[in-house]
Simulated scan of single mutants.
Amino acid sequence: MHDLLDNGARIPAAEAAPLSHAPDEEVSHLSDTADAEGPVRRFIVNGRFLATEPVGVHRVATEMVRHAHRLIASDPALARRIALELWIPFDAQDRANALGVPYRVVGPLKGNAWEQLTLPLRAGRATVVSLCNVGPVLRRNAVTMLHDVQVLLSPESYSANFRRWYRLQQPMAGDRHRRILTVSEFSRDQIVEANVAPADKITVIHNGCDHVLSDSADDAVLKRLFLEQGGYTLALSSLQAHKNIVVLLRAFARPELKDRTLVLFGSASRDRFVAAGYHVPSNVRFAGRVSDGELRALYENAAMFAFPSTTEGFGLPPLEAMRLGTPAIVAPCGALPEACGDGALYVAHDDPSAWAKAIASVYQGPQHRSDLSARALNRAKRLTWDRAARNLINTLLSL
């Protein structure tokens, strides 16, 4: 299933091919005619994310690593130019096995100590690449992806310790590391405005969303939740303030939607919403944590996906739904207009009445839903992980 690499072993690597692109998407950051001669450039990917409970930024890292490895392994010319090695702490092996790319277990320590001490001390002259908001802050030969500065834009969404750590380490990374990556023009502007890093040090690499096609739909989840095809609106279950789920709870308490069902998937349960002081209407169902196959089934069979977030560094969930042809209604906030483009319907984040009307219009207008579905799919098809991985490789080679 995997190769356990010895010290100094090299993972094969590959050269970026020309990319077709829509006018509103990023282009490759390196010319196809770049010099292919010279020594192999070693880059070590920080695999600590594989030792923790998966969240959205881990999806990005997973797909970036998987697709970059495939590109490199399939192109001998690129393999002569770049080696991209995945290093992990000992407690990350289960998820590393599932990732399906070669990796190396490097000790000692684990957790934050591994990331800040073991990884930079063992990396030698190689460049350390971190894709999940945190990198070894004292190391200069590093590239780190900062997905957003939400800890500054929505501090109430995070614990005090989390806020303190991010407010310390993000500016250090922005100052010391060779390159900062981010996932949208919006995030780049916010990083600059927060004085975390200057604009000319930041490269934007848009996420892909085609990973949602990798798993077969597990329709058993529909029976478990007593759902019918096209009979519900799907949304994320989160108590983070900026996810703004309260506007959906209020919308589904209104007369327009009293006979419609809202399904929330994720870790936040009904009891947790109630304990936090929210009124949860009886037409709201909680799916809990779901597998990728169950999530695909929920996306595909929903009448629409609702995402009223007040700020996002990118916004993967609506694009996952859109890639499966499900209409998305989102708030015009953060990077959502940049990511979703003309493929989504936009409703003000603070207007439950407008959300209720927009959602009801999709239920009541089959042609309206069909048009939204076509727009959604057309937009989402442009955002692929292959493209993101090519731009990652090109950025590293351009250092």
Rank of each mutant, 00 (worst) to 15 (best):
287 A>C: 11
333 C>M: 13
353 S>Y: 00
93 Q>I: 14
347 V>N: 03
15 E>V: 10
189 D>H: 12
84 L>W: 08
121 L>T: 00
312 E>S: 04
91 D>Q: 08
231 G>P: 11
208 G>S: 09
22 A>T: 07
103 Y>G: 04
259 D>F: 00
292 D>I: 01
150 Q>R: 08
296 R>M: 09
309 S>M: 06
214 S>Y: 05
79 A>H: 07
185 E>V: 06
92 A>C: 05
285 R>L: 15
343 G>R: 03
99 L>H: 06
5 L>V: 08
206 H>W: 12
253 A>S: 14
331 A>K: 01
186 F>Y: 15
159 S>P: 02
255 P>R: 11
21 H>E: 09
57 V>G: 01
370 S>Y: 00
101 V>L: 06
341 G>Y: 01
53 E>R: 12
317 P>L: 00
70 R>F: 02
304 M>L: 15
138 L>T: 01
366 P>F: 12
62 T>A: 14
105 V>H: 02
14 A>R: 14
175 D>K: 10
311 T>N: 13
201 K>W: 09
2 H>D: 08
42 R>K: 12
225 L>N: 08
261 T>V: 15
63 E>D: 12
238 S>W: 09
108 P>C: 11
377 L>R: 15
212 V>F: 04
396 L>V: 05
73 A>L: 08
97 N>D: 12
181 L>T: 05
56 G>C: 07
172 M>W: 08
52 T>C: 04
91 D>H: 06
183 V>D: 10
